[in-house]
């Protein structure tokens, strides 16, 4: 049984092809202006790698902020459920997941099957982790991927950077630069600030080992090390932290296909439209 998971995020689109639960192929592309096109392109790219076509899929599930518009998906599942499901597969025994994506951050707790038991989503500003680190990298003219290692060069927590708001942080960073503070110190400060911002999320959801970090920022060792230090646990980073959501979606697709097979393909019960007319649906 082959299934497909498509994750349409704000920065990247991801697709994962699974065969009987085994990873067959995956792909990551940058998100274009049109979510439908992004979804289609990334799905085809991943399928091409496996030499398959949409028609070969037993089921397709979409996730990510563009999940609702993916035309070829039978179901959409929130990225929170998908991240838990995917992390459960990649990091066996995981119970707490911190996902730091481009648009937002979430801390998720799940059970042994990867089902979410509670979650917290950042509700503060547009200060999405990925985006704010992008801004910092731009300001300091370093490549995003060098940011983490550079930050580790500073011995301590770096210079204090406002932890709430990118707008504040921006003016602070500019003035540090004017004062001639070393880049590594500023970067360390920015990583500390980001770590302390997401720390609260993890605390609120309640930390239980195993602890995993997913999403783009998981690749930033500057942030990861500081989080580990503050939480006193080691973070497990899946090999490809970006595709966790799409993988989860593909697993959900498999469950969906199995259920369908059992029911004799009656299809999922149609959700009642909430307002007969005049409503938004």
């Amino acid at each position: 049984m082959i299934t497909l998971g498509v994750d349409v995020g704000s920065l990247t689109g991801k697709a994962v092809v699974l065969e009987d639960g085994e990873l067959l192929a995956w792909e990551v592309i940058l998100t274009g202006p049109d979510s439908v096109e992004t979804a289609t392109a990334v799905a085809h790219a991943a399928l091409a790698k496996a030499g398959l076509a949409l028609g070969d899929m037993a089921a397709i599930v979409s996730t990510g902020y563009g999940r609702i518009v993916v035309p070829f998906a039978q179901r959409n599942v929130s990225e929170i459920s998908c991240h838990a499901k995917g992390a459960n597969r990649l990091v066996p025994g995981v119970r707490t997941i911190l996902d730091m994506g481009g648009q937002d951050c979430k801390a998720i707790r799940c059970d042994a099957t990867g089902k979410v038991t509670s979650f917290v989503m950042n509700d503060k500003c547009a200060a999405g982790a990925g985006r704010s680190m992008g801004i910092v990298a731009d300001l300091l003219k370093v490549r995003l991927e060098d940011l983490g290692p550079l930050a580790l060069e500073a011995p301590g927590d770096g210079v204090p950077v406002s932890s709430t708001c990118v707008v504040f942080a921006r003016s602070e960073i500019l003035s540090y630069q004017r004062e001639g503070t070393a880049k590594s110190e500023i970067l360390a400060g920015a990583c500390t600030a980001l770590a302390s911002r997401v720390l609260g999320l993890v605390k609120r959801v309640g930390l239980e080992p195993e602890f995993a970090i997913t999403g783009g920022i998981a690749k930033n060792v500057g942030v990861v090390r500081r989080l580990e230090r503050a939480l006193g646990v080691e973070a497990r980073i899946p090999a490809e932290p970006q595709i966790v959501g799409a993988l989860g979606a593909a697993i959900f697709a498999r469950e969906l296909a199995e259920k369908k097979a059992k029911r004799g393909d009656r299809g999922a019960p149609a959700r009642r439209s909430s307002l007969g007319d005049g409503g938004s649906s």
């Binding site: 599942v77 929130s78 929170i80 089902k115 979410v116 038991t117 989503m121």
Partner: peptide
Amino acid sequence: GQLRTRLQAFVEMVEPS
């Protein structure tokens, strides 16, 4: 937009699987 994700995740969480 974000609200929808939160609500959906919440409903998925309390839904019996």
